Simulated scan of single mutants.
Amino acid sequence: MSIPNSPDPSKSRLSDEAAHWCMRVHESDFGDQERERFDHWLASDPAHKREFDAMMEIWTLSEFLPTAPLPVPEPDTRRRSRRPLLAAALLALGLPLIGFIGWEQSWIPSSYQRYQSDASIHTVTLPDGSRVQLNLASSLSFANFKDRRSVTLNQGEAYFEVTHDANHPFIVNAGQGQIRVTGTHFNVWTYRDQVVVTLTEGSVKVINDRNRPDQAADLSPGMQASYDLRNNPPQISVASAATALAWRDGKLILDDLTLSDALPRINAYLNSPIRIADRNTAQLRIGGIYNTSEIAGLVQNLPKVLPVSLNRNDEGETVIRSNPRYAP
């Protein structure tokens, strides 16, 4: 995010909008209606996404800095209190002395990298030797601290093969929670506030709320933990590795799911999310194996395999509606 030599009102306004949305998406009261407005703002102009991504990078770094204990504030005050952190992160990164002190105190990382995949699966090797495979339209950042390795999965899905280091734990921040390991193989899927962790090797501790580390679940191979803002602690189930990792072969497996459960997995591959009209539609079931590069075609063909129709709402979004007189 560049800073011009002379004020540019349009640039300043765009930065303010990006900062506003950056703070709002991190608040617990960020609801579905506001999420729809944010999605519309993000998709309306490529410059909006570029500015928001730059603001998210600053936000990620600002969260590494310590904050003094404060009384519990009102919601609006809490949101405003994040603004100084954004400036503090930039200041700290620019001053070597503060940077050295920050490293010694495990506040500031010695290195920071950001990785992103767009239209193809992308495999990266992190500075610690760990390997990460990124699904389509996924992004993450890596920061190396004195006492830990910290990854933030900003969006999408990733499969981790973590280099073992018992004295330097590997922590993945996803949604409101964390996954903590020392060396293991696991998959993390995210969509908005939803997170699903599937373990294939080793062990991990899944925490669905970073502010409540006591609410945690320990996974062993073949297990899966899911959480969102409503789950406390994480929900545990037996995992199907073939289903969870099918994306690595370019496949999406829907194993007789309701549309309400399948839609987040479908929407993760679409530029604009599709909506469900009502409860009856949400209870319809769908199954099959699909190419992740052809999910838009799956949506268009839904009326051929389910008793539904596709329509546009006032915002131009695709809405799935069950046909009249159909009861699941």
Rank of each mutant, 00 (worst) to 15 (best):
D165T: 09
P71D: 09
Q215I: 13
L252D: 00
C22D: 08
L298M: 10
V299Y: 06
S12V: 05
K304N: 05
P303Y: 02
D29N: 06
N144G: 05
D214P: 01
L65R: 06
D314H: 10
F52N: 00
D261I: 03
H48G: 06
A282H: 09
W107M: 13
V162E: 07
D165V: 13
G250Q: 05
F160I: 13
A88R: 04
S2H: 05
N208Y: 05
N232F: 14
S12M: 05
T190Y: 03
G177Y: 08
R230M: 13
A89D: 01
P96V: 12
K11E: 06
E27S: 09
A242F: 02
T292M: 03
R312P: 07
S139Q: 09
R80M: 02
L257V: 05
D39Y: 11
D53M: 05
E157D: 11
L136R: 04
D45H: 11
S62C: 05
S120N: 05
G94K: 09
G99T: 14
N313D: 14
A143P: 00
F30C: 01
L91N: 02
P328T: 15
A143D: 08
Y269Q: 09
R321L: 10
A296I: 15
E36D: 13
A92N: 13
L284Q: 05
D8K: 00
G316L: 08
R180C: 09
P7F: 00
M1K: 02
G288Y: 07
Y115F: 11
G156A: 01
K11D: 04
R321T: 15
Y326N: 03
P264D: 09
I286M: 04
T60A: 04
V206C: 06
D261W: 04
E315P: 07
L245K: 04
K49L: 09
H164Y: 10
Q300W: 09
G202P: 12
Q176D: 07
S2T: 07
E17C: 14
A239G: 07
L229G: 15
E315T: 13
R50V: 00
V305R: 02
T125I: 01
G316V: 15
Q224C: 00
T123I: 07
N144T: 12
L136W: 03
T123R: 07
S2G: 09
A89R: 00
L245A: 01
N167V: 14
D45G: 10
P75V: 10
R285I: 10
W103T: 15
A268Y: 00
H168C: 05
W41E: 06
P46H: 04
P233S: 02
F64C: 14
L136C: 09
N232I: 13
A92Q: 08
L153Y: 08
D32L: 11
Q133D: 15
P169H: 15
Q215T: 12
S111P: 04
Q224H: 06
S150N: 09
Y269R: 01
L86T: 04
Y269G: 01
L270S: 03
F145G: 03
A282C: 10
W189Y: 10
Y227R: 08
Q178S: 12
L263G: 02
T60F: 02
Q224P: 03
H185K: 01
A217N: 07
W21C: 05
I207S: 04
S309F: 05
N135K: 03
